[in-house]
Design a protein around this nucleic acid. Structure first.
Length: 500
RNA sequence: GGCCCGUUGGUCAAGCGGUUAAGACUCCGGCCUUUCACGCCGGCAACACGAGUUCGAGUCUCGUACGGGUCACCA
């Protein structure tokens, strides 16, 4: 057995910074999780270290098929490349806790042997209050949460061992000290001191032989050589217990970097249950991975200056742990929209056209129309790709519209003027030889000049006639161009008929 | 309820004892203009409260209030 422990220890890489993203496979990735992954990635890569993906699936009842794949795909899509993980292996494989089941029990037993933990034979819930029941019932958890001594805590080790070997069901609990205090050093929260008497004898090894999260985390973080542990603030009150475990095992305590949650409002965390979008939901709505990552990075972390737009590699340059905030941040879609539109506008037209194509095709089935030209008028006008279809629904078919649409005070046009303008436009556009935006533009501009009217007086009715709606992406010229000469003339005719 | 943590405009946030308290999003004006959008210019809007320390406090200390986390054989 001594050799076994030595073997485990020998695998641990030393020297470099190692961080891990350790999600539990729930079937989706939330925004807060992505942020934690990003920070873990940044902490590692900032100093040329190693970023690891570890799957925490010790709760067998919660198994979700395909959940690990979703996590892997998300990380890949977001560009958070990990160096070791379940799908690629590594020096301390395996990286999925259920596959590591055998490695936890020896440590738990070692702790029992040393008197830092004990076998507990109580029925589940026998020796404590069931917190979940009380909260579900909406009952104020009353005074009764004092730590009552577990009857098994003081059983002699040898006697317990005999019972275990005889096949009695058991769990292994940590033997938390009843006096003194424990101070946790956290790179975000500073020093947090807890009275040991408030610590409970948490379960290390469950009845089914699986470790609890609390235990597996400590064991794996050590065996995988993790130097910086990133996790959500919900774990900060358990951190003293982790420290006690590290000490009992004689292991070095890693640096803790605790991050506050991403909220949906002042009172609740972002949650799928409340209908908040997961990372995948956002992508499906047409948000760009880079934009989401950039926005999420700034929820709870600030580079200090005025700059907000960062690519992943730029973040690497400016990221500092000291910039992480202790207070929770509310997720604001409006601001995400802003980031996303900035990213959309910043990309080359070709790239945008490619991304937009499926969305354009949802509304525009006519394959003769140019995707690129449509993308061009859309690029400065959409916050997310999902906005596209409703903006361009008039291309395939001219909508039904009322002639009142032709009336526009600022453009100095009304139904009578519109009729006149459309007739003139029709004649002029009919003569255009080469149907390019340049030719259409110059034709209409000079026509307005000839007629002695403002450009808008002519452009407004033309645009209404060819689009059938008051608000359109792009102007009359661009829409004429996309529609093609024949369709443009036919739609103008329709307008003339309506007005005549 | 015990313990732990947090609190700068509606939101994200800068600020590390002396500032007219940045910036961004949202919203509202204006300009540009071929509608809308983009772009540009301008505007509204904040240190939770009370004591203390100090010549001086958003910044330090302590209380109060409010909010969060935790007290599972869930993570």
């Amino acid at each position: 057995m001594a050799n076994w422990f030595a073997d485990m220890e020998n695998k641990i890489p030393h020297g470099a910074v190692r961080t891990r993203f350790a999600p539990s496979p729930t079937g989706y990735m939330h925004v807060g999780g992505l942020r934690t992954a990003l920070y873990a990635y940044l902490v590692a890569k900032k100093s040329g270290g190693t970023f690891i993906l570890r799957i925490e699936d010790t709760d067998q009842a919660r198994f979700v098929a395909g959940a690990t794949e979703i996590i892997i795909d998300t990380l890949n899509e977001a560009g958070l490349k990990y160096d070791e993980g379940p799908d690629m292996g590594g020096p301390v494989a395996p990286y999925t806790q259920s596959e590591r089941k055998e490695t936890y029990r020896p440590y738990a037993e070692l702790l029992c042997e040393r008197g830092s933990a004990y076998y507990c034979f109580c029925e589940q819930g026998q020796d404590e209050n069931d917190a979940s029941e009380e909260t579900e019932a909406g009952v104020q958890p009353s005074v009764n949460y004092t730590m009552e001594a577990d009857p098994c805590r003081d059983l002699p080790y040898d006697a317990s061992k005999v019972r275990v070997e005889a096949g009695a069901p058991f769990v292994i609990r940590m033997k938390a000290p009843h006096d003194g205090e424990t101070t946790v050093h956290d790179m975000v929260f500073g020093e947090v001191t807890t009275q040991n008497k408030t610590l409970d004898d948490m379960v290390l090894l469950k009845r089914d032989g699986m470790p609890t999260y609390n235990f597996a985390n400590v064991i794996d973080d050590h065996l995988m050589g993790i130097t910086h542990v990133l996790r959500g603030s919900e774990y900060i009150s358990s951190a003293p217990k982790y420290n006690l475990l590290y000490e009992a095992l004689g292991w070095e305590i890693p640096a803790y970097i605790t991050v506050s949650p991403v909220m949906r409002n002042a009172k609740q965390k972002l949650s799928k249950r409340h209908g908040d979008p997961t990372y995948n939901d956002l992508i499906n709505q047409g948000y760009l991975p880079d934009a989401v990552l950039n926005y999420v990075a700034l929820l709870g972390w600030s580079p200090g200056g005025e700059r907000e737009m960062f690519t992943l590699s730029e973040m690497l340059e400016v990221f500092e742990i000291s910039g992480i905030s202790k207070s929770p941040a509310i997720f604001d879609v409006e601001k995400l929209n802003h980031f996303n539109s900035e990213y959309i506008r910043a990309m080359p037209l070709e790239k945008f056209a490619k991304l937009a194509e499926p969305y354009i095709r949802q509304a525009v089935k006519n394959e003769k129309l140019s995707i690129k030209a449509i993308a061009q008028i859309l690029q400065a006008r959409c916050e997310k790709l999902g906005d596209i279809p409703e903006k361009i629904d008039f291309f395939d078919q001219l909508p039904e519209y009322e002639t009142e649409l032709f009336v526009h005070k600022k453009s100095k046009t009304d139904e009578a003027i519109a009729l006149e303008m459309l007739k003139a436009a029709k004649a002029a556009l009919d003569k255009v030889q080469v149907w390019t935006t340049e030719h259409i533009h110059s034709t209409l501009i000079s026509l307005a000049e000839q007629l002695g009217v403002k450009n808008a007086t002519l452009m407004w009715p033309v645009r209404i006639a060819i689009a059938g709606k008051a608000v359109t992406p792009g102007g009359a010229v661009e829409i004429c161009h996309i529609l093609g000469q024949a369709e443009t003339l036919s739609r103008i005719d329709t307008g003339i008929e309506k007005l005549a």
